[in-house]
Design a protein around this nucleic acid. Structure first.
Lengths: 334, 334
DNA sequence: CTGTTAGCGCCTTCAC
DNA sequence: GTGAAGGCGCTAACAG
């Protein structure tokens, strides 16, 4: 090593001594500069530079009860649907000096509990969940932990605390209404096996009025699974007119497999996705899908948590961010 | 609220009292069960259940100097290349009771410094960077912080501490060699404007022997940018035989745009990507690309950090994880 | 405006 | 095997 690798990291104590002030004054000069004289502040600043001081927020948080960390929990990071939310959340928090603690549940209730326990142990100032908290035990624990919780990407009558999302049932019925209005009669579904995808399927079926051929794939879907799904669907019903997918990646797979089989989209087969991934608008044909403003979910979640940290109690505590069915060439003949 | 929202979260002190033992004994029963009598351990366990105690790791870390957190820093979460690494890293750490603190630099040196400072303030037991640390100041600070650092997805003669990656120069020259061996003479490049993509381009040009038409796009690329890039490249040179892309998404865009223009791939135009995204093998035609085991990078990074936490000093500290050129239909006329 | 006094919740070191 | 001190680095109260 080139530098004398951390003989001892400088503490606020060292800074105070170097600046010739007391510990508290140094603390205030950094954390609450307004109430310290110009001179002192400058000297403390200088001492910080000189000593290379980096504050230990963990220690500070112990006393102040604010860790300046927020937990973010996703099913799995590779679920691309959530990426804009997590990215925006992380960015919005960083801007206010908060950092994100990332956890993954892998769609497993036991891991969800473990992850949430691990998070609570670190005293986050807030928790943002992608999806609703599944585990009853975890819900209870969270409720009495007093930590602000934002559940996202879903909706519930009885949220744990705050919720930002939309009705997946309504998404399903909107899709059903859309295809019905197109005069389409024979549709199949390729759908992930997670809670939200199942909700959308239920909503679809309720509005559609009868059951439809369905292939269920593990969440998160993939292009490959989409390709396979089309094969299986056509095996069940060879004259399908449309396939409704629970993600854009699955829908993309359907498009590719349709092309491989010489089926023209949308003439022979209409295809819809979900999520409005950035590639959806630029495929051939462009993909009809359901848009949800994932980044906005992240920003709002950050805002809600930060409000709570500042002692406010936002009303209402449930935000329907809505969705939008975007019609593109994959379902729009000519 | 349903439950009396945290009158006061139980502390180890409460547990000890409920179990009728001293604070230290309770601490040991949880953290070092081996050295406590069977009976005491059971009683402490019971007290934990009764009080709903969740340990405060922040407080524990203050004394023990181990936060059981590891920082992970990516350019942006949406850069899909890094997702397998971050996902595997997070999972591997969680398995050992460590959590990931996520940070984003947005390819900006100043933000990189800020993020790293924010991380250091939280006393992580290790830092995993996607890419090399760019900022000289940050390098210095990290070096003398004594925190184990793993730089990934790149290679360097003078790593900050540990590095797991591969030579992007070699990737570039491997691609050049491949296209040369195919007898292809007129190639263009669509390349991201990040450090690693530029290195691959340099490596390509060095082996290729002369400059080639190039379109530079903002990182991370997208399907849309790929489509645009093909248009621009063809405007520069209309008889291109191949396009080399710095990511699979860009390459995918080239494929789509080629199809839109009635160019057959690979007959009229060969296309290669980078990253071996999960869709690459299943496109039509399947995409020739460069595979890098991103998940393995994450697992190894976790292992290195954890070894350091356990006081070991792994040798060597530079790991070349290699890469593999995967030939598929997009460059292989049958 | 500045300093003194107490801890935050836990873990380490030392005694017993 | 257990317990009694002391302190990790910092910040909320109070005082001056």
């Amino acid at each position: 090593m080139n530098t004398p690798s951390s003989p001892k990291a400088a503490t606020l104590h060292d800074v105070a001594r170097a600046a010739g002030v007391s510990l508290v004054t140094a603390s205030r000069a950094l954390g609450n500069p307004g109430i310290v004289s110009e001179k002192t502040r400058a000297r403390v600043q200088q001492a910080v530079e000189a000593t290379g001081y980096i504050p230990n927020l963990l220690a500070g948080g112990l006393k102040s009860k604010r860790s300046r960390m927020v937990a973010g929990v996703v099913p799995a990071l590779a679920v691309s649907q959530f990426l804009p939310t997590v990215q925006a959340l992380t960015a919005a928090l960083a801007e206010q000096g908060y950092q994100l603690l990332l956890g993954q549940t892998f769609y497993d209730v036991r891991r969800e509990e473990e992850v949430l326990n691990a998070m609570i142990s670190r005293q986050p100032d807030g928790i943002v969940m992608m999806g609703l908290v599944q585990s009853a035990r975890a819900r209870e624990r969270l409720a009495k932990s007093g930590i602000p919780v934002v559940e996202t990407w879903d909706f519930s009558d009885r949220p744990l605390d705050m919720v930002i999302g939309f009705s997946h049932l309504k998404v399903g019925s909107a899709l059903a209404g859309y295809f019905l209005s197109k005069g389409i009669e024979r549709v199949g579904m390729a759908t992930g096996n997670d809670h939200r995808a199942r909700q959308r399927r239920e909503g679809f079926l309720a509005a559609w009025g009868r059951d439809v051929p369905t292939v269920t794939v593990p969440s998160p879907g993939s292009l490959e699974l989409g390709r396979q799904a089309l094969g299986q669907l056509l095996a069940q019903q060879s004259d399908l007119q449309a396939v409704v997918c629970s993600s854009d990646m699955l829908a993309h797979g359907i498009l590719v497999e349709a092309q491989a089989r010489g089926l023209r989209v949308p003439t022979d087969l209409a295809v819809s996705g979900f999520g409005n991934a950035d590639f959806a608008a630029h495929l051939l044909p462009a993909l009809t899908t359901v848009h949800v403003d994932g980044a906005e979910i992240g920003r709002q979640a950050a805002a809600l948590i930060l409000q709570r940290c500042h002692g406010q109690h936002p009303e209402p505590s449930a935000f329907d961010i809505g969705f939008e069915l975007i019609e593109r060439a994959s379902t729009a003949p000519r």
